[in-house]
Computed example of a mutant assay.
Amino acid sequence: MSQPQDPQRPFLPFGNPFQMILPKSSNLSPRLLSILNSFEATMSERLESLKPKDMEDILSLSWMISAAKSLSAIHTDVKALITSLELPVSDWDEKWIDIYLDNSVKLLDVCIAFSSEISRLNHGHLFLQCSLHNLDCATPVQFTKARSSLDGWKQHVSSKNPRLEKCSSTLDNLIDTLDLPKIKNSSKGKVLMRAMYGVRLVTGFICGVLAAAFSRSADKLSDFKPPETCLWADTFTNLQAVVHGQIRNVHSSGKVASLKECDLVHTSVMKLYPLSLNEDDPEAMRISITDLRQRADMLSQGLDLLAKEVDGFFQIILTGRDALLGNLRVGSDMFNSTQKSNHAEGPTVR
């Protein structure tokens, strides 16, 4: 865990893993090079689309939704690359399979943690709805109940989610194992490992930003330095500098680096609360109630959309994992069937 006085984590010292994947002496066929370049160019475009037009949008639900969509698209792209490589699972190295399965478990856990936090924040919307309902009644008793609900919302959103803490350690484990096994005598394998490395790095970055927004802290952000040989390196580095820089600037200024929509609701709650005590400015009260209702609805709708994107990413990882395990079982069954057949036939008489 990062120390409070030094929230910025250094660039991860991975060196240049692509020297193991695609050394200078290796030559890819035009077809494999085209597959790899197309994949990396597309990933660069997807990262470029995440560059925010306004710095304040970085911690907004709209940006997080776009980031989750891009992440799903990138993982779908790598599935298409695997198909294009025509590299059946039976030809995969055991280490590649272990990496894929281990990473998929970690990512499923991260998705579950994110879904848990989204559900928790959405549960807080019930406090806001209850408060707004009581404020509409405009009686002293109902106002007291409304203030109690507003207090409940403030306590709820400021509480900690244990699953997010576990999520941070899971992301750390995912990042710490970014290095890849050495690939020998397999051009297709080298292309696959290079693509998977890029996907894992981008996944670590995006999930880290989402985790920072949910946990309201910049301490868990990790900086990545991709090898210059990949087509998406510059785009990624620029995006990371902008996103991480803004989050750390907010954090270092003494503010809480939380969701923009949550901050807007909090501002409305803090403005409305004292008005509900005096009840001597009905027009200001009416405006504040309307403002809170609109911002609460915006938060709830944004959380619902983000929940769908996180669930979609979860399904992509799950189906990919299931497909790999299914192919492994088919390959194992075919091998066992062949072995039984050979055994039944007995030795060949020469």
Rank of each mutant, 00 (worst) to 15 (best):
V242A: 14
V157M: 05
M55N: 09
L108E: 07
L201I: 00
N278V: 11
Q315S: 14
W232P: 07
D136C: 11
G254M: 05
R194M: 11
H343I: 09
Q129Y: 03
K95I: 06
Q246G: 04
N327S: 10
G189N: 01
D234L: 07
E40S: 10
I183M: 08
D54Q: 12
P162H: 03
A296Q: 00
A211H: 15
K308F: 10
V157T: 10
D322P: 02
L239N: 11
V269N: 11
E45F: 06
E283K: 14
A80Q: 10
L71E: 04
S159P: 02
V250I: 12
G208C: 03
D311Y: 09
L121Q: 10
L259C: 02
N278M: 13
G302H: 10
H251K: 14
R194I: 05
D77P: 03
N185G: 07
L201D: 00
D223C: 14
A73D: 08
I35L: 14
L178R: 05
S34V: 01
S66K: 15
Y273V: 05
S168Q: 12
T348V: 13
S84M: 05
A284T: 03
I99T: 06
M64N: 11
S104M: 04
A80R: 14
A73P: 01
S38V: 03
T348E: 10
H266Q: 13
G320N: 07
S168F: 08
F11Y: 09
Y273Q: 10
C167M: 08
M270P: 01
V110H: 04
K106C: 11
P17T: 04
S300N: 13
D77H: 02
L132V: 01
V157C: 03
D281K: 08
L36E: 03
L33R: 09
N238E: 12
L85R: 08
Y197F: 13
C230F: 11
L61E: 01
P13Q: 07
D6A: 07
A73K: 13
S186W: 00
A68H: 01
A241F: 07
I289M: 14
Q5H: 08
K308H: 12
W153N: 09
L85V: 00
D234P: 01
L174V: 03
D234M: 05
P162Y: 02
S60F: 06
H75W: 15
P347M: 08
Q5A: 09
P347F: 12
A241H: 12
Q339V: 14
K24H: 12
D57A: 14
T237W: 09
M196F: 15
C230V: 10
P282F: 03
K182F: 11
